[in-house]
Amino acid sequence: MRVEELLTERDHVLVAFDGPVAELPSAGPRTDRLRVMVADRRLPRKVTRTGDPFVILAYAATIGPATERAVYAQLCRIEHEVVAAARVTPGVREALATMAAAGTQITVVSSLATAAVRTFLVIHGLAEHARHLVGRTGPDRTVLPPAPNLINAAIHERATPAESCLFVGSMDADLTAARAAGVDAIRHRRAATSPAAEPATPPPPPTPWFDALSTAAKG
């Protein structure tokens, strides 16, 4: 069976935002922008050295709820900036249209702030087919992949059994979360990065979205 048929025969396809839908740029020194908000006191070494924004967010919570809210709001603003600079994954529009035409429900799932992802889907004309979205709604890291919470929420919202769903993702944590929720998962291979070519060398043609899926990741 072709991968395209594997997806269109399912009642509900859950698609990770990072990779299958959007090619996200590096967030850059986002932890530096968060760290400066809690740097009015001596910081623990873990907070000083971390590249994980949720470590800084957890430390902000020890200072007080107002500081936690302020740091979380800044994290959401940074994510809006990152998503605004993202590119649409080649072929995803056509893939979503194909699945929607087959009657498949489509839900985009993301660990990023829900508002940032929704804005991207609307601006790039993807919300027409990916009408449902489950994203991060608060600072609780424990509900994010590899935990299955977001996948479970997507299944519950559409009232579809896990065996009728299929998940497409690029990140190991996302694929692990899907399997923990009892959902079959297929990996979307990210475009390989390589040194910049000479200006006269044309870029290679984009890989069609369905061709970038690996059925070997299913199960």
Rank of each mutant, 00 (worst) to 15 (best):
106 I>D: 08
159 A>Y: 07
94 E>D: 15
133 L>K: 10
154 A>M: 06
148 P>I: 09
135 G>R: 10
125 G>S: 12
141 R>K: 15
152 N>E: 13
141 R>G: 01
89 T>M: 04
153 A>F: 02
128 E>P: 01
86 A>W: 05
133 L>Q: 00
113 A>W: 04
128 E>Q: 11
102 A>M: 13
143 V>D: 01
120 F>E: 08
135 G>I: 07
129 H>R: 14
104 T>G: 14
95 A>P: 04
84 A>V: 02
110 S>R: 12
148 P>Q: 09
116 A>G: 00
141 R>Q: 13
96 L>W: 05
90 P>K: 03
76 C>K: 14
66 A>L: 07
82 V>R: 13
70 A>C: 07
84 A>Y: 02
156 H>V: 06
122 V>H: 05
152 N>W: 03
93 R>S: 14
91 G>S: 06
92 V>F: 09
93 R>V: 08
110 S>A: 11
103 G>R: 01
77 R>C: 12
107 T>H: 02
116 A>C: 01
148 P>N: 08
131 R>E: 12
83 V>C: 09
134 V>K: 02
120 F>Y: 08
117 V>Q: 02
131 R>D: 03
78 I>T: 10
77 R>L: 15
136 R>I: 02
155 I>Q: 05
119 T>L: 07
79 E>P: 11
155 I>G: 01
81 E>D: 14
90 P>V: 06
85 A>D: 14
